[in-house]
Amino acid sequence: MLQTNFKEKMITVLFWLSALVIVGILIAVIGYIFVKGLAHVNLDFILQAPKRAGKEGGISTTIIGTLYLTAVSLLIAVPLGVATAIYLEEYDRQKSRFAFIVNLTAETLAGIPSIIYGLFGFVFFVIFMNMGWSIISGGLTLAIMILPTITRTAQEAFLSVPGEYRENSLALGASKWQTISRIILPAAVPGILTGVILSIGRAIGETAAIILTAGSSLGMPLSLADPARTMSVHLYILAMEGLSMERAFATAVLIVVLVIIINYLANLSLRRLGVTRGR
């Protein structure tokens, strides 16, 4: 009996230890980058354009590039994803074969690695559609990548709208589309917002697909046809080509800060919804 007790205690310790290792890894990664990089982050670094291929100056153009690409991809993916979710949850409740395939496609799209999206974006948007390395090529590629996240969170949001909302609206004589656009969609906005926030996180961190579709030009992207470099691509090039470790650390700090903010916002909007996030 005593021995069993001892064994159980040891196993409990093992469980706590593995959880501690996870926490330790997180603290090590974030802590190290902050300690090494925070000293190099200042307003000039954020506001100045990079000079000499990034060896000097700041990262302003890559911040603009990141924002631009993220915005374009959201503008394309959010309407599409929400429309898909409306169709699947409000029109196709019996879960037809079509709905099954759409759901399966979304799951499969979510599992495809970013380098494959990069290859596709390169051969389809950059070459076949003749868009070149540009914001629009990168934005369209990124839009396909975040579409599954937007669709899935929007589906959950529609599912969580109580059935009475629909019944009451229909009983008052509203048409189906009136019910959806005036009652259900507004009620589902917080859930949709969660998907948008998560997608922004993915867009900011994406690197492989962006290099192959938006290029890595350090210039300020003005039009949709201009090539651009995002912060993540910039970090990769700075570190791999050994251009400036200080600036690489500082860029990493900014990316991690953005990720933490996005994570916080996503949790906030999820908690308001009262649901837990899946994988």
């Binding site: 974030i30 994406e206 970090l235 996030r277």
Partner: peptide
């Protein structure tokens, strides 16, 4: 722990690569 794991999932791969490199 769930929050920590979510944060771990949110860190982009290029940042992990950079951490590995340095």
């Amino acid at each position: 722990m769930a929050r920590m794991v979510e944060l771990l999932a949110g860190i982009p791969s290029v940042v992990y690569g950079f951490f590995g490199l340095v």
